[in-house]
Write a protein that binds this DNA or RNA. Structure first.
Lengths: 192, 192
DNA sequence: CTCAATCTAGGACAAACGTCCTAAATTGTC
DNA sequence: GACAATTTAGGACGTTTGTCCTAGATTGAG
């Protein structure tokens, strides 16, 4: 089944791009990881950029599904935002080892001047829009997008430093701070 | 003069590592940028890791000098912290194009499992210790290091997102927010 | 069962990589 | 001015890279 092999390739490439980076991952690495030949590989993806597109689209789909799930499971918008903040802890081990999958890919592609950089930034946009919607539901109106970007930025910074210093305590402290910040924002909303 | 050639190589490598990344920059790229032959190049640096070490040490020295300068020019510790926060704006154009030099290098080396990753993290430590010292002078005592890490993290997040979205407005808004946060911290310090 | 379409394996290709070598050119010292 | 040490240029090396090709294996439709 072509779809299965394609998916196995994308899964392996996704992981390797995250753990080693796009540039540092070769065709042979991915093929070896999947256990297929380079020739078979080429039948599914003509160029390295094709794999990158596939991986980004795969991540976009998976992220969308995750956000949709949170939309259902989260009791209220504030709780949903807290779910987002807590990915930092849920994925803490990976983040300390490899950083944030979204941020590090976006940074690398920006440096490579790669055409797919804007597609990778689309992953950020997915989170940004979702967070914005949650803030809107909480009643923040026009300021919602700026709050969404603020949360996104804070998360990125925490991921970068937790990775650089391999510091789990910092990660937890900053997650707590972000939750306090969120409560403050909601409290201030009531007093205006 | 050997020192001059060495310095010219390091300067070119520093810039290229920042703009394109370490892995994506080749010996030929650096030699071509300096205008010397690869053979000459090899006389100064035996391996690519040697250049990386040289670049990191160069950055460490330059950063230390910059922080020392701020120690003199900044009127008070709070003003000095504001100088730090405002590098985001001073280097705004570069950051939107290539991200933060410290954060992106650290992330890349972490993914490559490179031995020099901890050296690169030393650049963060330089800023961290300096910021910590400023907070201590302001009277934050034991909490100073956590505040330093918080500022460092916020800056990293702002740089990552400003780069991903090439967004100058976001960068300015977040710098303002960080200054407000700083004033709040100092104000709260007085009321306890 | 047949045959066309699809999938797979493995090798070939030029280019680029980091590394190393040799031989000139330049420099500094007596 | 002579000579040793340093600096420079440029090519050679083995590997790895992304890409491409051909031929056999597998699959599915009639």
């Amino acid at each position: 089944m072509v779809a299965e092999t394609r998916e196995r390739i994308l899964e392996a490439a996704d992981l390797l791009f995250y753990q080693r980076g796009f540039e540092a991952t070769s065709f042979a690495d991915i093929a070896g990881s999947v256990g297929i030949s380079r020739g078979n590989f080429y039948h599914h993806f003509k160029t390295k950029d094709d794999i990158l597109d596939g991986v980004i689209n795969r991540r976009l789909t998976n992220t969308e599904q995750m956000l949709d799930r949170w939309e259902v499971t989260g009791a209220d918008p504030a709780e949903r935002i807290r779910s987002f903040i807590h990915i930092l802890i849920v994925n803490g081990e990976k983040i300390r080892k490899f950083g944030c999958p979204v941020g590090t890919l976006s940074s690398e592609l920006a440096k490579l001047n790669h055409a797919a950089q804007s597609d990778a930034a689309g992953l950020f946009t997915l989170f940004r829009s979702w967070l914005c919607r949650q803030f809107e539901r909480l009643g923040f109106g026009e300021g919602s997008d700026e709050l969404a970007m603020h949360v996104l930025g804070r998360s990125q910074g925490v991921a970068t430093l937790a990775n650089a210093f391999d510091d789990d305590g910092f990660l937890h402290r900053e997650v707590d701070l972000m939750c306090v910040w969120l409560d403050d924002q909601i409290a201030q909303l009531g007093t205006s």
